[in-house]
Design a protein around this nucleic acid. Sequence first.
DNA 1: TTAATTTGATACCATTTGGTATCGCATCAA
DNA 2: TTGATGCGATACCAAATGGTATCAAATTAA
Lengths: 107, 107
Amino acid sequence: MTPDLTQNCFRALADPTRRDIVRLLAETNMTIGQLTDQFDMTRAAVKKHLTVLSDGGLITVTAKGRERFNSLNPQGMAPVLSWLEYFDTYWDDHLAALKTAIEKDKK
Amino acid sequence: MTPDLTQNCFRALADPTRRDIVRLLAETNMTIGQLTDQFDMTRAAVKKHLTVLSDGGLITVTAKGRERFNSLNPQGMAPVLSWLEYFDTYWDDHLAALKTAIEKDKK
DNA sequence: TTAATTTGATACCATTTGGTATCGCATCAA
DNA sequence: TTGATGCGATACCAAATGGTATCAAATTAA
């Protein structure tokens, strides 16, 4: 139970492996074993990343027999989105340029 | 010159002091000295944070005499927003599935 | 029951990170 | 010119981070 969810959420997303895990879990719920198959590291390392993601409120775990399925909590992104919203007014001035930048990035 | 702008951007936002700096610079362009007055740490520490923010593409620096004004680069958020956009479709898919289920239930 | 599978937990290690202290270089003011 | 001011750079330190190796517990399969 960590108090500062915003900090934990930003911290969770600051690692490329964890961002990859988030994307994988957006596709399918997976066990640690299945996730470990997708990376070049040990199960213990993946487990640590999952703990950080859990502290950030980004994933939840559901036990099923001896397996534990990790699933994405889409609402976990809320702290990040909320923080970014602060710049809405600031962005109004630059919104056109920003939109253009994002569109370019897509392609 | 850092190659992975997405990673550097997420990393830059992963520290609470740096997020505070970003908010301050959204209000006013400031020198390191002015920023240091806002925090309980040395100028060298603030400078390091500014370097990380610069690596993340979130700020730019403009020299004016012996002062160097740091300003927010609003387009710097683009990598984060772009990454988050991936989950818009995640939301849409789930929403579509939910709608379908409701429609079926009606009949 | 016995053995294999799936996982959690911990000790340990190298590197990164966030911080200070300190030096030297420009620039402005006297 | 002589200080004072604003800044960058570096050496150094404690703590956090990302990883491994290893052990123990619980569930499933033989």
